[in-house]
């Protein structure tokens, strides 16, 4: 336990001093990794901890981004309202989609969510006058203090840290244990007197909200939104981060995000076959690494400790 907190503090310290020592591009990359890590972690709350087949999580990321971007570009409201509106839009759609999909069993929940999500994508894609269509919206202004790479990096670090802390608390709360019970055995939870639909809906709202927060952060870091943010291949990408890192672990998805974002940044620029690489990674993980990388690291560390003991 003590060890874990030492590791966390070390990582946090490194993250704080990072912009002072590395070039601007890496600061930007780290910002993207941080917000994507939050995105993957928020998906994991639904799929890993509650067993809900949230197959189109990118929708909430996109909605958070578009919500923020539209308030900034179309209204004169202050910035902080834009930063709040994004996640709220994501939550509202989580609620609507959730209420519709919850009528179905697990499998069909996922199918319908993909379909409804694609509808939202299609509307955003076609609604030129409002959303900018397939171009999206670029050059979105943000307040001066977070306009440069360092500024938006610290803003991202701050928001992501708080969000991750909240999510961590939720997972280890009675509510968090309850949703894990729902995942493991829904029938049993019902006969314990737990209303599983209400719990699941709340999980969807939480996942949607923090997905939206990640989208809002993307606007701050990249000053742009575009429909690809909410295309289904991006949902697949987030799913892969979760699975690659480790679905039933808290930090796994973050590790997955680090790996996938880094790979995409370097490979995505030299090949046009990034989706195929993603697909192959996914297939590899399914067959050879179903527990995810985090479990691998954990076992390795434990094994070392064990060896040292004996």
């Amino acid at each position: 336990m003590v060890k874990k907190s030492i590791i966390l503090i070390t990582i946090f310290t490194v993250l704080i001093v990072l912009p002072l020592i590395v070039p601007r591009f890496y600061v930007y990359l780290t910002s993207i990794i941080l917000l994507t890590g939050l995105l993957a972690t928020s998906l994991n709350i639904a799929i890993g901890y509650c067993g809900i087949y949230q197959f189109h999580h990118a929708i909430f990321y996109g909605l958070g981004g578009y919500g923020t971007a539209l308030v900034i570009t179309k209204t004169n409201l202050p910035y902080y309202i834009a930063f709040i509106v994004g996640p709220i839009v994501a939550v509202l759609f989580s609620l609507i989609i959730g209420l519709i999909c919850m009528r179905l069993t697990k499998l069909y929940f996922g199918m319908l969510q993909i379909s409804l999500g694609s509808l939202i994508w299609a509307v955003v894609y076609r609604w030129y006058s409002f959303t900018g269509g397939d171009d999206g919206i670029h050059g979105i202004p943000v307040p001066d203090f977070i306009a440069d790479a360092k500024g938006n990096y610290y803003f991202t670090l701050f928001v992501v840290s708080i969000s991750i802390f909240i999510l961590y608390r939720i997972i280890n709360s009675p509510f968090g244990k309850t949703i894990q019970g729902i995942r493991d055995n829904p029938i049993r939870t019902v006969s314990l007197g737990i209303n599983i639909n209400v719990h699941k809906l709340i999980v969807l709202l939480i996942a949607g909200f923090f997905g939206g927060v990640a989208g809002m952060l993307f606007v701050v870091v990249d000053n742009a939104v575009f429909p690809d943010m909410m295309f289904w291949t991006y949902s697949l990408e987030i799913l892969i981060m979760v699975l690659l890192g480790g679905m039933y672990t808290f930090w796994g998805p973050f590790i997955g995000a680090i790996i996938i974002v880094t790979l995409r940044t370097y490979l995505g620029s030299i090949t046009q076959y990034w989706p195929m690489i993603l697909g192959l990674i996914l297939i590899f993980v399914i067959f050879f690494l179903p527990q995810g990388i985090y479990a691998l690291i954990e076992n390795f560390v434990k094994g070392k400790a064990h060896n040292a003991d004996s």
């Binding site: 009675p174 509510f175 309850t178 019970g181 007197g193 719990h199």
Partner: peptide
């Protein structure tokens, strides 16, 4: 978990389980 349900604590989100 059964006790959480019995004492209606399943919606507590910010305290340690």
């Amino acid at each position: 978990l059964a006790l959480f349900s019995k004492y209606s604590k399943t919606f507590r989100m910010f305290s340690k389980a």
